[in-house]
């Protein structure tokens, strides 16, 4: 059975029929919409470039592609790419059916094609449907993911925060120390412990104690820089981690200011709450950076400061005998 050429117009709106010289005898209606001024009478290979298989530049070679998939593109205009499939007509000519393949999405937009430009059996319209449906669904999923990511960040934020004071918590401090240790970066660590806090709690109640802790947190945030980490790591214990190397003078200054401000009595329900603070300081030069060791050294320095009397601070130095402790007049801090 041979299919009359006229039937091709109905079944294949993107076909071309070629004579034995490779000239276009007829072309389907949809091909006429691709912005090529004249199709009939022109040499097929002048209008379309076959780029796979390679080296197809005459009718003889074109006929040899029978049974293979042709990759073509328009030589003019948008250079739209097409897929093709050739069948010889038995008299030296051939019919080639074309389709846009994956380029259909751009093609319908570029040439303002409608459903009527595709054969009813062509899946082009279904493919366009699918592309739009999937991009809308993906969009909805992406929005959900963004919201979930926001919620996750919030949750992480909360998990790193001490809910009473708004400072970072022990987990956050561990996290920062691990990061600094891994980066082998120099940093300084202050371990601050409140003096007389237990008395405030015992005599004036937990609300007063909480108020004192919140006040201490405010002072710490006030005195530290944005890049420093101020954390409450226990009932009345605080740690400040300062990344980058910090001079001993600055550390001493900071410790003195903290102790002075914390030692100022605060009013709660009209009654004075008096605490002070002791501070132990250790430093890492970036070569010995085990967080646990630095924390332990700050701890040793803190106890040295406590032993020497309250409201003092001390630097850790290798060997317990070398720990120095500087007296600090709490009341005259300002």
């Amino acid at each position: 059975m041979t299919i009359p050429l006229a039937a091709l117009h109905v079944f294949c709106p993107m076909h071309v029929a070629l004579d034995r010289f490779g000239h276009i005898k007829q072309a389907g209606a949809t091909l006429h919409k691709l912005g090529v001024p004249q199709l009939e009478g022109r040499r097929f290979l002048d209008v379309f470039e076959v780029y796979r298989p390679r080296a197809v530049d005459c009718m003889t070679q074109l006929l040899r592609t029978e049974g293979r998939k042709l990759h073509l593109r328009l030589r003019s205009g948008k250079r739209t790419s097409l897929k093709g499939h050739l069948v010889p007509d038995g008299t030296g000519g051939a019919a080639i059916n074309l389709s846009f393949g994956i380029a259909v999405i751009d093609a319908v937009r570029d040439y303002a094609l409608t459903s009527a430009d595709f054969a009813p059996t062509d899946l082009a319209v279904e493919m366009l449907y699918l592309v739009e449906a999937k991009s809308a669904a993906m969009d909805a999923s992406r929005r959900l993911n963004t919201r979930l990511q926001g919620a996750m960040l919030d949750a992480e934020e909360r998990a790193f925060t001490d809910t009473l004071t708004g400072l970072r918590n022990r987990r956050a401090m561990d996290h920062v120390l691990t990061r600094l240790g891994r980066a082998e970066a120099p940093f300084a660590l202050m371990h601050l412990d409140l003096d007389f806090f237990k008395q405030v709690n015992d005599t004036m109640g937990h609300a007063a104690g909480d108020y004192v802790l919140q006040n201490v947190a405010r002072i710490m945030l006030d005195e530290t820089r944005k890049d420093d980490t101020a954390a409450r790591v226990g009932g009345d214990e605080f740690v400040i981690v300062m990344s980058n190397s910090v001079s001993c003078e600055r550390l001493s200054d900071l410790a003195q200011r903290l102790i002075a401000r914390i030692s100022k009595p605060v009013l709660f329900d009209g009654r004075e709450c008096r605490v002070s603070a002791s501070v132990g300081i250790s430093q890492s030069d970036g070569t010995h950076t085990d967080p646990a060791t630095i924390l332990e050294e700050a701890d040793i320095a803190l106890y040295a400061a406590k032993r020497a009397g309250r409201a003092r601070f001390a630097f850790y130095q290798a060997g317990p005998a070398e720990i120095t402790s500087m007296p600090q007049n709490a009341a005259a801090g300002e």
Binding site: V108, R109, A112, T114, L128, A133, S135, A136, D139, A140
Partner: peptide, 16 residues
């Protein structure tokens, strides 16, 4: 209705 008009159309959380 243009076939090729809406590949970037997104619904605002409404059904697809």
């Amino acid at each position: 209705f243009k076939l090729g008009a809406g590949t970037r159309v997104a619904t605002t959380g409404s059904p697809v």
